[in-house]
């Protein structure tokens, strides 16, 4: 929706904005790929603690993971509602997605502050540096997603979301789900495989 330049007929019969966005997601794969690679390469190389198993709170993060999965469900429901032209439910699901996103972010803020209290900062060791930069980058993506969702919600409130421009919601959804699948990887690689 930041880009409003698609023509209605295209060589491949695909929406230009969607195509650009899939290319963007492909690009993001390499961004997170590099960050995750850095995390894995430096795994177990910290000279001093705290180490992952000292500090990672699996039950807490499981709830966050569940929360993000549910937000993805809300997102697809929002898209389905917009495509049906059901603006009332679209508003509900959009704001629900955003709220779950905000809940996830609050969880991350809580997690970061408690880690700092327990003595893990960016500077402490390689685990701290790689962990905060990787999950922080993910958190920044979630933040952008929340702003985007709220913008769409406001548009919906103004009655400017219609089935005809459902693709704007679909693209936001692609972004949101991508951020979700990245979390699926982070949850496994960082939290569960210690």
């Amino acid at each position: 929706m930041t880009i409003a330049a698609a023509t209605h007929r295209t060589s491949m019969g695909l929406d230009s904005r969607k195509m650009a966005f899939w290319a963007f997601i492909g690009s993001e794969c390499l961004l997170f790929g590099s960050l995750i690679s850095t995390y894995l390469v430096y795994k177990g190389r910290s000279v001093v603690g705290p180490y992952p198993h000292d500090i990672l709170n699996i039950p807490f993060t499981s709830v966050s993971t569940f929360d993000l999965l549910m937000s993805s469900l809300m997102m697809v429901l929002a898209l389905a509602a917009v495509q049906r032209g059901d603006l009332k439910w679209a508003k509900v699901w959009l704001v629900a997605t955003a709220l779950l996103g905000i809940f996830f972010l609050s969880g991350q803020v809580y997690e970061f502050t408690s880690f700092v209290r327990e003595g893990l900062t960016l500077q402490t060791n390689l685990f701290g540096a790689t962990f905060f930069v990787l999950t922080g980058t993910h958190g920044a993506h979630v933040t952008v997603g929340v702003v985007w969702l709220l913008t769409l919600w406001v548009r919906a409130l103004q009655g400017q979301l219609t089935a005809a421009n459902a693709v704007t919601v679909e693209i936001c959804g692609l972004y949101w789900h991508f951020v979700d699948v990245i979390w699926i990887v982070i949850f496994t690689v960082v939290y569960l495989i210690q």
Partner: peptide
């Protein structure tokens, strides 16, 4: 990418 693929 989009230009070349979609605007031919």
């Amino acid at each position: 990418i989009v230009t070349i693929l979609n605007l031919r």
